[in-house]
């Protein structure tokens, strides 16, 4: 699972390319664990190249959010396809996650 990290405006943008499912979730979790170990204060996850998410992927993202909250870190999700966004709506995870339409907006308004 290719994950590209980028520093922009003092925050980390994480680009995930592919599917976030039961097969890829352990690798994605490991990548986020490194950011959490460094207590990254602000992380934006860009979903523009994510084509599929299953319940394991959703659980992984919840785990990342939970772990970031332990040190006051904040997570933003951006560029979700309408279909993937609908999964967050169905599962009510949209209430839990900070979801912003576009990466540029997610970065510029991340105070």
């Amino acid at each position: 699972m290719p994950i590209r990290l980028e520093n922009k405006n003092n925050l980390t943008v994480c680009h995930i390319d592919g599917e976030i499912d039961i097969n890829s979730s352990p690798g994605i979790k490991k990548a986020f664990d490194k950011l959490i170990a460094k207590k990254e204060p602000k992380v934006v996850v860009n979903f523009s190249k994510v084509s599929y998410v299953d319940s394991s992927g959703l659980a992984t993202l919840v785990e990342v959010l939970k772990n970031m909250r332990t040190y006051g870190g904040r997570l933003r999700l951006t560029n979700l396809s309408p279909k993937i966004k609908s999964l967050f709506e169905i599962t009510k995870l949209e209430k839990l996650f900070d979801i912003v339409a576009e990466e540029e907006e997610a970065i510029s308004t991340f105070m």
């Binding site: 319940s55 659980a59 939970k66 599962t91 009510k92 209430k95």
Partner: peptide, 17 residues
């Protein structure tokens, strides 16, 4: 899994979906 007490849990969303 959408209840406030369960929303942070890791399981239960598969059957719900």
């Amino acid at each position: 899994p959408t209840a406030n007490d369960n929303i942070m849990k890791g399981s239960g969303r598969g059957v719900y979906l």
